[in-house]
Amino acid sequence: MIFEQIFNMVNVGIVILDRDLNVRQWNRWMETHSKISGNEIIGKSIFHFFPSLDAPWFKRNCKSVLAFGNFSFLSQKLHKYCFPLKPVNTFGIKFDHMQQNCTMGPLRDQTNVVEYIFLMVHDVTEVAAYEQKLIEMNIKDALTGVYNRRYFESRIEEEFERHKRYKRSFSIIMQDIDYFKKINDTYGHQAGDFILKSFSTSVMSRIRAVDIFARYGGEEFCCMLPETELVSALSVAEDIRKRIEHTTFEFKNTPLNITISQGVSEMKPDTSCAESLLKKADDALYEAKRSGRNRVLNK
């Protein structure tokens, strides 16, 4: 009697399956989160209600419990979830389903033969959300929300390795906001931050999903365009330049206009390392600055 109460009171989903994977027990937690009552599901195949479990990974783990008396640990990291249940709270991250760690193990009869499989379902959505946030904090710039320099550099290394193998072209654009210091000095740092954010949003709306746009430092940004030759990269940069030049950003009723200088470089067979590609773009950016700003140059 007391065991039955515990079975239904714990904040864990508990399911008991027989050797044919029919449901034998279904606790209150499972009823609540799946909206399927014990009366409906007990005696029926688990696959009838959860067809997504009719997959090699689930059946393999059931078999190992039945064959060896194994415990199986179905981690959220690999499987996300076992049962497609609605998340109770997604903690600000978009999860379609409650994230779960599940444990499976054997239940034996008096002669130690495995008769049933028990499944325990733990809701780890909160932990998964924190992990997701940590990953994002690690690769994104806090102010603008675009990628940070470290992530950019790791991606450019990857792209460089890919280029060595598959010889696919890619280009990078280095960007710098002209006279940024003046905005900070004239209108204050809040205005400066606003410009950095608005500029990022504007660039993001112009580039493709595969492009990697990052804040490289201060008012300097960087954009990597995979599968893109120099000519196309120049035209993207020119388009961004015009957009920025013709946009009036409004900060607390003060209209602000900015221009940007850009340097572009393309990955060539003789480029020795990712760093030298960045250096070329940086040199071109320096030239663009020196020759009057608000322009795109390449090296």
Binding site: F68, G69, F71, S75, L78, R108, N112
Partner: peptide, 26 residues
């Protein structure tokens, strides 16, 4: 990592489980 853990779990469990079975325990 996760796949390794899953395979490891099955392999270790298989061997340990079978030894235990013969020794009359679990």
């Amino acid at each position: 990592t996760e796949i390794l853990l899953e395979i490891g779990n099955i392999l270790i469990g298989a061997c340990v489980g079978k030894v235990s079975e013969l020794l009359g325990t679990f």
